[in-house]
Amino acid sequence: MSSTPERAAWPSVVALIGLAVGGLLLCGGLFRAPWSDEVDCGGRSMKPGDRCISSNNSSTYEERREVRDNGVWFLVAGGIAVAGSLVTLAARRRPGQG
């Protein structure tokens, strides 16, 4: 049947997409992860109760800290996506499996 080779390629295609998406999530997580406890507003350190006001938005210390802390989940999701994709690709390229 002619659809068998096309269907067999789908796991590899999905794994490559997962690898790309996972890589983007990892990069996003690296930039958003809380590498220090400091919360800043335009390079200035903030304290609880402070408000950051910029030309296009306004946010509180707590809101900015929550956004910063979400970077960890980008790292976790990206790591899982990359690992799963690499395992899938490695399994597909095992010797003896056409």
Rank of each mutant, 00 (worst) to 15 (best):
G23Y: 10
G43C: 02
C52S: 02
M46G: 00
E38M: 10
V87G: 01
E66T: 06
L75G: 03
L25S: 11
W73E: 02
R32Q: 15
V87K: 10
C41Q: 01
A33C: 13
W10C: 04
A15W: 05
S2A: 15
T4I: 13
C27T: 15
L19M: 05
R51I: 12
V76K: 04
A83N: 08
K47W: 00
A15V: 10
V67C: 06
E63L: 08
R93P: 01
N70P: 02
I53C: 06
V67H: 11
S59Y: 09
M1N: 10
L30F: 15
L25Q: 08
A15F: 10
P34R: 14
T4D: 12
G98M: 04
C52Q: 01
R7Q: 07
Y61S: 02
E66K: 02
P95Y: 07
L75E: 00
L16W: 09
R68W: 08
R64T: 08
G71W: 00
S85I: 06
A81H: 07
R65S: 14
L25R: 04
S12Q: 11
P95S: 08
G28A: 13
V14C: 01
D50R: 00
M46L: 07
I53T: 12
A83H: 07
L25C: 12
V39L: 05
L75I: 02
I17Y: 12
D40N: 04
L30C: 11
A90S: 13
R94L: 11
R32H: 15
E66F: 10
R32W: 15
S54N: 04
I80H: 04
S3I: 13
K47F: 02
V72T: 12
V14F: 06
M1Q: 09
Q97E: 10
A90C: 13
A81Q: 10
E38P: 01
G49P: 01
A81I: 04
R65C: 05
V87C: 04
A9W: 06
Q97H: 05
S36R: 09
A90H: 13
V82I: 07
A77Y: 03
C27G: 14
L26H: 08
K47H: 03
R92K: 15
V67R: 12
W10Q: 08
V67F: 14
S55W: 08
G79W: 05
V14E: 00
S55Y: 05
S45K: 09
D40T: 15
P95C: 07
A83I: 13
T4E: 10
S3N: 12
I80P: 01
A15G: 03
I53L: 13
M46E: 00
S58Q: 13
F31G: 10
D50E: 01
F31M: 13
T4K: 14
V67Y: 12
L26I: 11
D69V: 00
M1S: 11
G98P: 11
I17R: 05
